[in-house]
């Protein structure tokens, strides 16, 4: 089990996966908007999405977990 962390503070504009989905290393899982740019957040490792921790419109801090993957 590991958490996918945001590398920048911003607002969630899209969640690209659902709980139970398989993700590969480098899969884009959430898109944030911050500082006039879209920021895809990627999974660091392969696994299955166990829990989605954010919803569209949420503000996330840098380093905040957006997903749990197992």
């Amino acid at each position: 089990m590991f958490q996918v962390l945001s590398d920048i503070a911003g607002v969630v504009i899209q969640v690209l996966v659902a709980e139970g989905d398989e993700v590969a290393r480098g899969s884009e899982v959430v898109i944030l908007e911050s500082m006039k740019m879209e920021h895809p957040i990627e999974s660091g490792d392969p696994g299955r999405v166990a829990k989605i921790l954010v919803a569209e419109g949420d503000f996330v801090e840098e380093g905040q977990a957006v997903l749990e993957v197992e």
């Binding site: 590398d7 920048i8 911050s34």
Partner: peptide, 8 residues
């Protein structure tokens, strides 16, 4: 580098 944190 726009690839990383949008280059911010």
């Amino acid at each position: 580098q726009p690839m990383v944190q949008g280059g911010v």
